[in-house]
């Protein structure tokens, strides 16, 4: 079992405790730099003016929402394949952050769409698949919360995460197909002439989003571990130390 040293909840709990603050600090620093570049360094866009600056939030959020779903599917596959409980906990810990980024991407997209396209919502391929991704997150969260037996909830959530991950490319492809067939909305994504500073700003913001997600997921996974493992001796001691009730 040495191979799976960090799959032991106790080891992972303390590891997560050490890593979470580190990632939190990284996230804060990167976000500060990224936001500075976004708002003060990056030049005003010739066509869109200042409004475009929302992409520094919008694009990283959209990326992150997809990455997190894939990460959930990855942990789910590991959990089902190797039977490691911590993998399921990780998957569960990631879900709310993924849903948050997904919502953020939709929200900032709507805010961006209003001044540039003249509408909050368009049945554009990307927005539509983002919306469906949000539904997948909701489904996952609702299912794992509806099942009372924790073990069943973990595995059922893993199955739906994997099924969803298999479907994401299909959904994206079909929505794109549908969008090109129905030329109802005459909206084109206005091209921004991306300059280097913009790209750097976006990348730094994306890294900040990564660090934030990892930090938050680790904090969340710690409380999930404590909750699930509260029967065990070490968790009991830990909970007592934190002034809780086992």
């Amino acid at each position: 079992m040495n191979l799976f040293k960090f799959s032991s909840p106790q080891t992972f709990y303390s590891l997560a405790g050490k890593l979470a603050p580190a990632f939190g600090v990284i996230a804060a620093v990167l976000a500060a730099i990224g936001l500075y570049i976004s708002f003060f360094v990056a030049p005003t866009d010739a066509v869109q003016g200042e409004v475009y600056r929302i992409i520094f939030i919008h694009v990283p959020a959209a990326w992150m929402s997809m990455v997190i779903y894939l990460a959930m599917a990855f942990w789910s596959a590991i959990g089902l394949g190797l039977g490691t409980r911590v993998s399921f906990y990780m998957s569960k810990a990631l879900a709310p952050t993924g849903a948050l980024f997904c919502f953020l991407a939709l929200w900032t997209g709507a805010l961006w769409g209003r001044p540039t396209w003249g509408t909050y919502w368009a049945w554009d391929a990307r927005m539509t698949s983002q919306l469906l991704l949000l539904f997948l997150y909701f489904g996952h969260i609702a299912l794992t919360n509806a099942i009372e037996d924790a073990r069943r909830a973990d595995k059922a959530g893993a199955i739906i995460a994997l099924v969803g991950a298999v479907n994401i490319p299909v959904i994206y492809f079909s929505v794109k197909w549908w969008n090109t067939l129905h030329q109802g909305s005459s909206i084109n994504l206005t091209k921004i002439s991306v300059v280097n500073t913009m790209l750097i700003g976006m990348l730094i913001m994306a890294l900040a989003a990564w660090a934030y997600s990892i930090a938050v997921a680790l904090v969340r996974v710690r409380s999930i571990i404590l909750e699930r493992e509260r029967r065990t001796e070490w968790a009991g001691v830990e909970i007592a130390a934190q002034g809780g009730r086992a």
């Binding site: 489904g139 609702a142 509806a146 059922a156 959904i171 492809f173 079909s174 929505v175």
Partner: peptide, 30 residues
């Protein structure tokens, strides 16, 4: 898949809808 996952749960019907409808969108589109 959804029916098997939501078996015996409270509110299984609406949960089932939330789980499987997004997955069925491609079929609807084509």
């Amino acid at each position: 898949i959804g029916a098997a996952l939501t078996l015996g749960l409270r509110g299984a019907g609406s949960l089932l809808a939330l789980l499987v409808l997004p997955l069925m969108v491609p079929v609807l589109i084509f």
